[in-house]
Write a protein that binds this DNA or RNA. Structure first.
Length: 527
DNA sequence: TTCCGACAGTGGGGTCGCAAT
DNA sequence: ATTGCGACCCCACTATCGGAA
């Protein structure tokens, strides 16, 4: 029978995932996944974890929703696939390159799915599209790994965050290695610490005591490692982007001291030092061409220096060290003490507000307020860092609504939003121009209401989208407006979410909705 | 008993590279 | 040269579970 080195049957994984999906109880999900993980040979753990997370170890496979929708052969009658079989097929997908690669990928995919049973096909399609819908991703799986290996979950979590790799952590745990010995290591990217959010700097400051208030730059997160003088850079999701940021490599290469791990943000600036729109940063950062348009970088944290990990040191200590290392590349901000007689709540709030105003005046997104006593909580969105950004609201008209998917199946979900175009400058669309969509901010009550109401004012239905008489006004919050080639007005909403419907006591007629010009005032200077 | 931290899910905007057309 | 797909940068918000208070 199957020895310890044999590859687990795919069907065992599929049925564990089905068990996890079938219950809402997290402890039951954990138990279901732990049971199957306990049977996995340690060497296969990264592959298994990759499958359960819907992010295979091979990385980008070049197969997405569209491809799997068109390539579904008849399922096999009986289960025969092992985890290793799937892993091999995924490697073929991942390594197909050049002319004819699409055909070779299609062939490999068809072959794999043809050897899978119907339930295995469903599982593999979810893996390939990254939509597991088991209610058990990294958080729950971390608990399951701890349970399967009889290791405290806190130890597993810390190892996973500091190694940036849950699969490797699972392998080590199942192999009986001492996870407590895993520490932050220069050259090994670590899960970045994230920030919660608050509506105002006053609230953020009140929640934290002594704080650092730092500019929030509208660029891409960058984690930079220097090992024996060699510099590498990683994104927030830990993808390596060293070759895209030569200016950062050069800058960090010149910093004093030995091995380093720094946390910061990169973006493009105007000639006069003003922040460029995020789209411009991505145009440079997202591609291979590093020609003109230099990237600027600012650092706000140091996780390793002077031959030791600093993740457990308070932010105040890390700041002191950071300042000495990066000098002018330090992110702008202010330190605001707390607790003393001379720095009452009103003074502290005013100082924080000043920094917030200065950040906006310089074209930045807002601020991040950070507790000075807090350690670097890798991979956590804790309460020790709180971001504050301005929010703008507009009254827009619902032009159409899409049918929802997943847990929103059977509900009308995603709204098409229009701004008023009284002069018909942007085409003849009944006096309104579509400027974006949103599905956010909708409670179950609101989803139920709009599912009942919108069909009563529908003017068309293509099976997916109901077009509506433009008469329902909804108050939408956004972070800003960006230029768009998709929408006829040349602008699109950024991070739109519903605040409330302007119906009933709040009623507002569509004729009084906000206009394209109202939105255009929020479009940043394009330079 | 109530509260709240952490998680998963549901999708939004744009950008690029790449292969096919 | 253009188009469509996939990957990935930014992201908000609600519902839910289960441990903390």
């Amino acid at each position: 029978m199957s020895g310890p080195q044999a590859s687990p049957a795919l069907s065992a994984l599929v049925s564990a995932a089905a068990d996890a999906a079938a219950t809402r109880s997290r402890t039951a999900k954990i138990a279901a996944l732990a049971a199957v993980l306990a049977q996995v040979p340690p060497a296969q753990a990264p592959v298994v974890v990759g499958l359960l997370l819907g992010s295979p170890v091979q990385g980008r496979l070049g197969v997405g929703w569209r491809t799997v929708a068109s390539e579904r052969p008849a399922p096999a009658a009986a289960a025969s696939l092992s985890v290793a079989d799937v892993d091999e097929a995924f490697t073929v997908l991942a390594t197909a390159r050049g002319a004819g690669s699409a055909a070779r990928r299609t062939a490999a995919l068809t072959d794999l799915l043809g050897r899978a049973t119907a339930t295995e096909q469903d599982f593999l399609v979810r893996v390939l599209t990254g939509e597991m819908r088991t209610g058990a991703l990294a958080g729950v799986l971390t608990d399951a790994i701890g349970q399967a290996a009889a290791v405290p979950v806190a130890v597993v979590r810390r190892a996973a965050m500091l190694s940036g790799d849950l699969g490797a952590t699972a392998r080590a745990a199942l192999a009986g290695e001492d996870l407590a010995r895993i520490t932050l290591t220069p050259g090994v990217p670590v899960q970045p610490m994230l920030a919660a959010s608050a509506p105002s700097v006053e609230e953020a400051v009140a929640a934290l005591g002594p704080v650092s208030v730092e500019y929030k730059l509208d660029g891409a997160r960058l984690q930079v490692h220097r090992v024996d003088g060699v510099v590498r850079a990683y994104t927030r999701s830990l993808a390596e982007v060293t070759d895209r940021v030569p200016e950062v490599v050069e800058l960090v290469g010149g910093f004093p001291g030995g091995d380093l791990v720094l946390d910061g943000e990169t973006l493009t600036l105007d000639a006069d030092g003003r922040a460029r729109p995020f789209q411009d940063t991505m145009s440079r950062f997202g591609g291979r061409d590093t020609g003109d348009r230099p990237l600027s970088v600012s650092f706000f944290d140091v996780l390793y220096a002077q031959d030791r990990s600093l993740v457990d040191a308070p932010l105040s200590d890390r700041h002191e060290l950071l300042q000495a290392i990066v000098g002018p590349a330090l992110i702008p901000g202010a330190l605001i003490p707390g607790g003393g007689a001379v720095d009452g709540p009103a003074e502290r709030a005013r100082a924080a507000r000043d920094t917030f105003d200065a950040a906006l005046a310089a074209g930045h997104e807002g601020v991040v307020v950070k507790a000075l006593g807090a350690p670097y909580a890798a991979g956590r969105r804790g309460a020790d860092w709180i971001k504050v950004k301005p929010v703008y609201t507009f009254d827009l008209v619902v032009l159409a609504v899409e049918r929802g998917s997943g847990r929103r199946t059977g509900r009308l979900s995603n709204l098409h939003l229009g701004a008023r175009d009284p002069d018909g400058r942007f085409g003849d669309a009944g006096g309104f121009v579509m400027v974006g969509k949103t599905f956010k901010g909708l409670t179950d009550d609101l989803l139920r209401w709009q599912t009942e109401f919108f069909p009563t004012i529908a003017t068309g239905d293509d099976g997916y989208v109901l077009t509506l008489a433009p008469e329902t006004v909804v108050e939408v919050a956004i972070d800003g407006v960006q230029r768009s080639s998709r929408y006829p007005g040349g602008l699109a909403l950024r991070f739109a979410r519903v605040k409330r419907y302007r119906t009933g006591a709040d009623a507002k007629p569509a004729a009084h909705a906000d206009t394209v010009d109202d939105l255009l005032q929020r479009l940043p200077p394009q330079g």
